[in-house]
């Protein structure tokens, strides 16, 4: 565990807290893509199946359970409790366009052709693009609430910090995992446009509004 990794995980937890708090306080999930949240739930479910087969540390298992639990809770808030506020007309990204290529890619590009390994690989590929329905929704409505922007910034920072962690681990431990690194880079690059808007607009107390 290094400082980048710890900060990354904290950013991830922060993102989840911001999202749940926003939905709960406003009693509304307006502006939140349910499809991205479905994809994230799928990502955690596929990746953390290993919680039953391998034990790394108390921290590791706790975080896995936290991500599984909170993603289930988020889906419950969006699709059950506050369903009337869910903006499904703007959440029109076709997730099959992400699921199918990720599934095919994980069958061909993996470390080992075994069930758990392929599911892990699939989750890594899927996570890298899982935010696209949310970014698509922001682009479609042309704006995002500040709190949604904070959520996206925290969530984007998480994988960017993991990239720093991988650079550190490569130097310090000669350790690297090409699949995770390339997917992590793709994931971070997808946020770049948003990061730019966040720094130039939201941090100056302006609403995140895209040019028409």
């Amino acid at each position: 565990m290094n400082i980048f990794r710890l900060m990354a995980d904290l950013a991830h937890v922060l993102a989840i807290v911001i999202l749940l708090h926003k939905i709960w306080k406003s009693r509304s999930c307006a502006g939140i893509s349910g499809k991205s949240q479905i994809l994230f739930a799928l990502v955690y479910f596929m990746r953390y199946l290993d919680i039953m087969t391998s034990y790394v540390s108390f921290y590791n298992s706790t975080m896995k359970l936290l991500f599984l639990g909170t993603s289930g809770a988020t889906l419950n808030l969006i699709y059950r409790k506050f369903k009337p506020s869910y903006d499904h007309n703007h959440d029109s990204f076709r997730i099959a366009y992400l699921l199918v290529p990720c599934a095919l890619l994980s069958l061909f590009l993996n470390h080992e052709f075994s069930v758990l390994e392929i599911l892990w690989t699939f989750s890594i590929y899927l996570e890298s693009v899982a935010i696209l329905p949310q970014l698509f929704m922001v682009a479609k409505t042309g704006e995002a609430e500040s709190i949604t922007s904070h959520y996206l910034f925290a969530l984007g920072s998480y994988r960017a910090l993991y990239v720093c962690n991988w650079v550190y681990r490569y130097i310090a431990e000669s350790h690297f995992d090409l699949i995770a690194i390339i997917a992590g880079l793709v994931q971070t690059i997808l946020y770049c446009d948003f990061f730019y808007l966040y720094i130039t607009k939201v941090l100056q107390n302006r609403k995140l509004q895209l040019p028409a």
Partner: peptide, 10 residues
């Protein structure tokens, strides 16, 4: 250099 899945990560 050994390549090994980073399963200790989240």
């Amino acid at each position: 250099i050994h390549i090994q899945p980073a399963k200790d990560e989240l």
